[in-house]
């Protein structure tokens, strides 16, 4: 295949492959693994338009005869870049969708400063009937823990959360039940997590396993962990990854 046809068609092929991948993701409800739900409709509309243009270009467009002559070096560079881009596009279509793993959670510093009172306000939470705390997510709890570590606030409040396991580097008896929360797309995903004190958890579970943790907060018995409070679990059950693994 000639240099000219690569140069001419590379963009259309990349748009086509990315469009197929996006449509497949949208059809299987997995587009939310990559972008916030509010962009799904816009994205699908634009991708379908792109798809029609790809089709029209392939069937109807006329050959564009002139092209700037390229030096061998820039040709090689350009072929390399296109090969890499094509590989990525092929992977986009051929590989199943995936969520970010605990490797990224670690690297992005779980419960970094990005979690604040804006997520769940302490004063509002104080007015919530006790039973409703069972509906609080990992993010809600992480936000509350940031605002107060006074055990009196957490006493008798039921915790029932789902998340994946991120090990606590400072103590093998503690892990974080964690979720990513997303404002725009997976690129900005921030990990939020709540510490769980469960000696020997590593013999039952592995990092990245999805679990449902029920129990209550208690003073963290761990000596190594910097967290003053941790969930004292009544039960830790292995569960399937939820269909919307990110919190929005």
């Amino acid at each position: 295949m000639s240099w000219l046809s690569i140069q001419r068609w590379r963009g259309v092929v990349l748009v086509g492959l990315a469009a197929v991948a996006t449509v497949v993701l949208a059809a299987t409800g997995q587009l939310v693994l990559y972008i916030h739900p509010r962009y799904v409709v816009f994205t699908v509309i634009m991708v379908v338009l792109a798809f029609l243009l790809v089709l029209a270009s392939a069937l109807l467009s006329k050959p564009d005869d002139e092209d700037a002559p390229a030096s061998p070096f820039s040709k090689a560079l350009s072929v390399g870049a296109v090969a890499l881009a094509a590989l990525l596009a092929v992977a986009m279509v051929a590989l199943p969708a995936a969520t970010l793993s605990s490797a990224t959670a670690d690297q992005r510093d779980i419960n970094s400063t990005a979690i604040g009172a804006s997520d769940t306000d302490l004063e509002d939470a104080a007015a919530v009937p006790t039973a409703e705390f069972a509906a609080f997510t990992v993010l809600d709890w992480a936000s509350l823990l940031r605002q107060t570590t006074d055990l009196a606030f957490y006493r008798d409040k039921p915790v029932d959360v789902v998340g994946f396991i991120t090990p606590d580097a400072s103590d093998p008896d503690v892990f974080y039940v964690s979720r990513f929360f997303v404002t725009c797309c997976a690129v900005d995903a921030q990990p939020a997590g709540v510490p769980v004190y469960l000696p020997g958890w590593a013999s039952q579970f592995e990092a990245d396993d999805w679990v449902r943790v029920t129990g209550q907060f208690a003073a963290n018995p761990s000596s190594g962990s910097a967290e003053p409070l941790a969930i004292d679990p009544d039960d830790v059950l292995a569960v399937e990854q939820p269909s919307e693994p990110y919190l929005f």
Partner: peptide, 19 residues
Amino acid sequence: QDLLTLAFSVIVESLPFVI
């Protein structure tokens, strides 16, 4: 896997605006 997920995410996010 995370590198690919992040790269795909940038592409899916930008593609509609590029179009």
